[in-house]
Design a protein around this nucleic acid. Structure first.
Lengths: 327, 327
DNA sequence: CTGAAAGCGCTTACAG
DNA sequence: CTGAAAGCGCTTACAG
């Protein structure tokens, strides 16, 4: 808190009997063929004694890189997000990269403001999750679970996940499998809708679809709509566990027993699906892996070796909310 | 991505026909009595034309402050956390402060490493949430929902919240109100336990207590224990909504109808309490307010005006998981 | 293998 | 009210 001015590279150099440049070389890991092992050892020893750590801002200013990337999201309270962030942070740690979580706020201008964090040199690059990208990327950018012209994407295999979910319901014998979707912009939601439709078509079936806002209450309302149709759907394929939880509430409201008279399946595999009663069948997304892969993909792009990783597979987890339809 | 080197204060100065110092003055808001309104206007205009933004690292290096504070937490997937972070970020925005979310990782050394982020000048100060503080603070620090010698704390009024929860159950007529607690270190959990005990004592009652790890499955197991006691508790006071959700699972396992034969009340007011079936009665913590207040308290401490705000009141929300005991 | 030196873009006394 | 100048702590050619 007080006193001792923070040790600098000069202080270390003096103690080790070398120049400040040498200290810098040691700490930036550019030591091979430049600094002898013995000198490096002496420098590290001196640094430890003084409690020296390179000053991030000084190095950023000089080198023009912050070694921080931003993860931009519309809503920091999204339960899925924590896992993605953790995966990205862990992957970043190995490369000395920090991941900053940024919630630009709901309106479009704020989003652009956040993008220009890049300009302000606060971050070197960014990952967008649930945020619509500007028409031209202001810097190295990766989209998570979304696709847009001119951008690199890291994706879940949502089509495969949807097929697994709908297939599970078909296997159980359901014929009226409605879709409780959401109208959020990211392409991931469109993919669920179109794949659901395709699966029904292939089975020669049809069923209604309702799009709801991304909240418990919105989903509850939308599920009420679906469940008051005649004939009533016997199963609900929901775009997210949150929506499935809302559907569960609606079923409860209407005294429709789950799974005896109604099967509900979610998507994502968040805590919500586990905590629900009955526990929700769902399709688990490998969230940490998604975060880690996004970060790695971003680093590759920054190194000038852009790659497009293949979509990550999702895993069907049948639990207590799905069963054969009543007859 | 390409080209145009980033505009600097010099570029703006040249365009506006002033010196770089003047540009700096304008952007650090130290303009009163130093720069005329007319010149300020000219500078801002030029800056807008060039898309100039001050370089954070340069200003950090020179001024010795990053204007970033860290929010350190043991688990970024905690559903309560998002709201705290959002409150802190919003409050920070008004002061030009950025809040960085940092998960040091489970083991003690990492925690110390994270603390020394302060030394690395990445953050000016920090807020600890669910993290045990080192014996001496390495810099300006505020504890959220915890108390320790030599530290400033920002607290929820957990005692009042506990009294509200237990009182609610007493009012409904319950006499065997067990406690499903957790053994996490932060003092907030001890406060719940002792206040629960006091409320029972005052009513001349006694009841069992089990401490569980902070997870759905641990809570489920602990609730099994409580619910297999004779006589069986008619109500469960749970330290958190997550634990209450686990208790709900246990009741479901044992075919004990909630709330007809068992009342369950949670703590926190997260999405989980709303999404549960039946919806959980709980005591809502003002999470965003907690985050905002923590940040303000931290800023005050950094300005040399430490204050200890009074604990934030919690709000009882009776929902569908509590009812009079069976007779 | 090692060091002297320039300079990244700001902030802040200081002089006028 | 405005400007010239020093310097924050690094990185990185460059010279030896």
């Amino acid at each position: 808190m007080t006193g001792h001015h923070r040790p600098t590279g000069h202080d270390v150099a003096k103690l080790a009997g070398v120049s400040q440049s040498t200290v810098s070389l040691v700490f930036s890991g550019k030591t091979t063929g430049r600094v002898s092992a013995e000198v490096e050892e002496r420098v590290r020893h001196a640094a430890t004694r003084l409690g020296y750590r390179p000053h991030t801002s000084a190095s950023t200013l000089r080198a023009g890189r912050t070694r921080t990337v931003g993860l931009l999201v519309p809503d920091v309270t999204n339960p899925f997000l924590g896992h993605v962030l953790r995966g990205a942070q862990r992957a970043g740690r190995a490369h000395g990269i920090t991941v900053a979580l940024i919630e630009p706020g709901p309106d479009r201008d704020w989003q652009l403001t956040a993008m220009s964090a890049l300009n302000a040199a606060a971050i070197d690059a960014m990952m967008l999750f649930g945020i619509e990208p500007p028409s031209a990327a202001p810097g190295p950018t990766v989209l998570i679970e979304a696709v847009a012209d001119g951008y690199t994407s890291v994706l879940l295999d949502v089509r495969q996940g949807t097929t697994a979910a709908v297939g599970h319901l078909l296997d159980l014998g359901h014929r009226r499998i409605a879709h409780l979707g959401t109208d959020l912009p990211p392409t991931t939601f469109k993919a669920r809708a179109s794949r659901w439709r395709r699966e029904l078509d292939q089975a020669g079936l049809d069923a209604p679809e309702v799009l709801a806002g991304f909240s418990l209450q919105a989903a509850r309302g939308a599920a009420h709509q679906l469940l008051s149709m005649t004939p009533r759907p016997t199963a609900l394929f929901c775009d997210d566990d949150l929506l499935a939880a809302g559907a569960l509430m609606a079923a409860h409201d209407l005294r429709i027993p789950v799974p005896a008279e109604l099967s509900i399946i979610g998507f994502a595999g968040t805590l919500l699906s586990e905590a629900a009663t009955p526990q929700l069948s769902t399709v688990i997304a490998p969230a940490e892996e998604l975060g880690a892969l996004s970060l790695q993909t971003l680093l590759q792009a920054m190194d000038g070796h852009p790659t497009t990783p293949r979509p990550l597979p999702m895993t069907l987890v049948p639990r207590a909310s799905t069963a054969p339809p009543p007859r």
